[in-house]
Amino acid sequence: MHASITMLGIVCLLSVAVALAIIGRHLTKKPALTFATKMTLLFGLGVFPASAAVSSTVTGMEATTHRSFCGSCHSMDAYVADANDPLSQSMSARHGRNPYFGDHNCYTCHADYGLLGYPLTKLNGMRHVYEYYLGGWRNKTPEETLADIHLRKPYDNDNCRQCHTGTLPDWALIPEHAALEEELQSNQVSCSSGGCHGYAHPFSKPDGASATGLPPSALTDEGVESGLPEAARQKLREARRQRAEREAAIEREARQAVEKKREAARDAAQERQATPAGSATAPPASTGGAP
């Protein structure tokens, strides 16, 4: 529940109050149906209720994007508690601490991106309500909920990319991104798979089994590969091999450069030793010392 009522909410409540006052007056005083009565009732049964309907719909739709709304079903208790935990390092909690959409983090990440994203997300929400009240989820224990809850379809990477754009050159410089571009586009590989950017929630199930926390391998190379299809794994290994080669080449060049500098310094020292002692004691011109 929200701590405060928005401006539109106040408009709705005022409209309701005025409409109820007009209706109540009509029901108690029972005036004759004159033109004036009809006009008054037009406001009491038409204008103010319409204003209340519009403002309550906008307010209600806005309310459905808040984390507290998602948390109003007990199935989501653990998820909301994790997102609210200031010490949690899960992806959802870190996004929840982002000031740009903090309290809207469930909706922002789970709402489908695109033209039909909003209505489709709302329709999907209606299915959640049906499942909760009529599908038996309401009576499940927290443990049963965590074990049974799952995504209906693969998580759409476009939802990540609406903020984390993949069109910048830097994005493609990451070998994992470059190698798995196709798989990421087609959602065969999720940005939030174990080992890539990590699971979104501490209860995410890497292999369909119930997990109680992030697997230790979640942020290692092996962790990334563990959840990938064979073809993607091969591409990823190839990209890593190329990266390793590139890094080795850079390191080699750097070593050679250092070696050259050392040799130059050695040569300079030998030259200084070879020159007469009198000229060696003279101050260098660059220091600007006294003659």
Binding site: L13, V16, L27, A52, T59, G60
Partner: peptide
């Protein structure tokens, strides 16, 4: 009038308790 009363109350309820 009797139809509008519960309708208005439900709208007000949805604003005050947005669950």
């Amino acid at each position: 009038c009797w139809l509008a009363i519960p309708a208005l109350l439900m709208m007000a309820w949805s604003v005050m308790v947005p669950t």
